[in-house]
Design a protein around this nucleic acid. Sequence first.
DNA 1: GGGTATTTGTCCGTATGTATT
DNA 2: AAATACATACGGACAAATACC
Lengths: 264, 264
Amino acid sequence: MSNPRYQQIAEDLRAQIETGSLKPGQQLRTEIELRDHYDASRNTVRDAIKWLMTLGLVETKPGQGTFVVQKIDPYITNLTDNPKVPTLYGEVEPSAAGKIEVEGKDRILESTEPQIEIQKASAPVASSLQVKEGSQVISRHQKRYIDETPWSMQTSFYPMGFVLKGADKLIQADDIEIGTVKYLADTLGLKQVGYRDWITVRAPDPNEATFFKLPPDGRVAVFEIFRIAYDQTGTPMRLTITIFPTDRNQFIVNVGQVPDDPVG
Amino acid sequence: MSNPRYQQIAEDLRAQIETGSLKPGQQLRTEIELRDHYDASRNTVRDAIKWLMTLGLVETKPGQGTFVVQKIDPYITNLTDNPKVPTLYGEVEPSAAGKIEVEGKDRILESTEPQIEIQKASAPVASSLQVKEGSQVISRHQKRYIDETPWSMQTSFYPMGFVLKGADKLIQADDIEIGTVKYLADTLGLKQVGYRDWITVRAPDPNEATFFKLPPDGRVAVFEIFRIAYDQTGTPMRLTITIFPTDRNQFIVNVGQVPDDPVG
DNA sequence: GGGTATTTGTCCGTATGTATT
DNA sequence: AAATACATACGGACAAATACC
């Protein structure tokens, strides 16, 4: 009938957090103090704290203490911005040292220089681009920061044929200042007329956890968003996979007629 | 330099899972066997298993053992379906015992009867519907199942004024067979011309964890999607909040011209 | 249905390591 | 360097859930 001891302790602390008795950023009592207060063992108190950690309510800092988590001011990305207008998401590759105003909040967006690889198409990449599995594709990878905190990891895949037909800049490790969308339109006549986003959530892999400074145990999940862009013939011209931590990112989708974004 | 013992053990098991040496659904060796195999204590082995659990790689069943998780065949929801067409998502309230073919897969969609409440608008509800905080709103809550497994929890909020102006069915605890979108158009002349979705991810609360049969420690997150629907004057006419577990749900967003969904 | 063996869950105590102040 | 606080690791005991006979 009754929950285990460590859950009871966790519930008690949780209540204090949710009523505001313990405020965001505030330090909890130490494990020893909590052990005495609840008349339990230190390990049981630690089990309670672990429970609150996977719920995302507290975080521990060795040598310092246990703290109520501060919610991060979220980054909001609109997935349905008109693709003719430069957007944050994938359409434009801003210069490696570029500065952009984000959400009207004077945030600074920075990107690493694209890391280019020629790869053999894995099964999901091949089926997305409608090329044969194992055929060559161009992979352009960038890491992005907002206000110097890691924001997203993005990899775009293009069929190798694009380069052979004249879009050489795709395999140069520089930003394409005008954006790849316009570049492909200019050089190959490929117009992007639409895209499909596919939104999933999963635990981060160790690479991602390190880059985003997430706890390595996977308790903070990441969005994995697949964007397949189509040209005027309905053929896939690009696959872009972007990873965003769920603790600091939210998305907006507009359909039909809606008032202007209230963001900012 | 070297990782702690329990992480090393976790990495070893993780490698076995990812190489397919341990297959989905397969039982791991018991904690006692693993303790002997790794020459560690049982608690250290358990820490390794906990690590793999929050990564979503294994699950434990008391009295039975530890198993590699089976990925659930995901439900895919299109957020940009034409709202004039009945869709799964919020536009139509199917009959409580209704059956619908989902994704061409003959899945059965069931909904509980709407649970109606008259509430005072909380701050987020009030600002979404552009009514005064504390003013009365109608809340219609439904739980939905696909193939008898819990799929989503949905709550729609409408301004109380709609009922006073003649849309009485909003406060009746029955399904509105023609759908609330058409009902409001017929009775009040309110045409839904668009909507905005706002996608967030967070840990489930205890209610949600129970309904979706998620582990209560919050290691499986939930999508929380806010949909604000607008009428022809650009005024919000509905706020719908839907909760989906992230372990069995994915979303599609189409922008511009894209080929038909390959789903199904 | 009952009893027993198996397996994971809870809880304790203790010792030592590591990060921070 | 010392003190503080969390992290890792061990060992043991009993409880609770499940499966099987």
